[in-house]
Amino acid sequence: MLLSTIRRLVTITVDGRELRVPDGSTILQALYAVGDTTQADTPVLCWAPNLTPVNACRVCVVEVEGSRALVPCCARKVEDGMQVRTNPERVRHSRRMVLELLASSVDLSQAGGDVQRWIASYGVDPQRYGPPVAPADDRDHRHAGHHHYPDGSTAETVAQPVKIDNELYVRDYSRCIMCYKCVKACGTDAQFTFAIAAAGRSFDIRIATEYNSELPESACVYCGNCIGVCPTGALKSVREHVLRESGQWDPAAETVTTTICSFCGVGCNLELHVQHGQIVNVTSPSDHGVTHGHLCIKGRFGFQHVQNLPNQTNTHTGTPE
């Protein structure tokens, strides 16, 4: 960043190679900045460039000399003389297992291309835990400290009904990996609305409003910043959800146009995601100095008027608008 403070450089050794990186950076930042191709492809799920690391997913673990357990490189700061190894067998094992445990319990089919690539390259085999259990409708009401003892014939998952309780976005928690990003974006990292929080415990942990009330009854202001940071498609706009459900979602045809939001004078950068002449989503780049990737309800959802023309048939969906 242009105006960041000038920092002392420290020397760390990564896989036998000495790297000079600014003091105060995380190991992950160092790998991204000066690592080789493999090191720069360190898998991350709960980390995002515009959020404080929560280091919950543990997929980015590396070995650090002097530390008995592996350490999450997204959160661990570099220290002078630190010895880091990114490729021992136990690192690969942990990464494979984290991806495997998630893939066996969560629907990752809408997670980004990186995730699919990591799943393939780390040799993940989610099938070995058995066939998935039938979707559950009681996940919002499970009590901490109690569960039905399984017989092991099926593998427990987080599969559950989709929550559609408002016109702007859906919550499909069958796809939720509990990365806490939405909670951070709703709370202290962006919006300071605190409409959602982690609730429950153990495998029955979930993202919830108070007493699982519907979003319109909650503190939600529909900024959609939770959608913006969700890595697996658990949170998405109703528009995207409808198109996907009707088989008309077409990411191959998507173009992205950069523009500036016209609703107020702040000047947020917008990226309009367009499929077949229709805006399907609006995002903002995470490295933008004003938005840091976060928007408000107007920027993210206030685009319908652009395509809400009278007496025109939507060529994409074939329905009159």
Binding site: A56, V98, L102, S104, Y129, D151, I177, M178, S202, I205
Partner: peptide, 24 residues
């Protein structure tokens, strides 16, 4: 499986899978 806080994947899902395998 009950007492895991649920924050990190290895423990949250690992304890479930361990219990299932042991049950089998």
């Amino acid at each position: 499986r009950d007492e895991s806080c649920g924050q990190c994947v290895p423990c949250r899902v690992g304890t479930v899978r361990q219990e299932e395998a042991l049950a089998r």
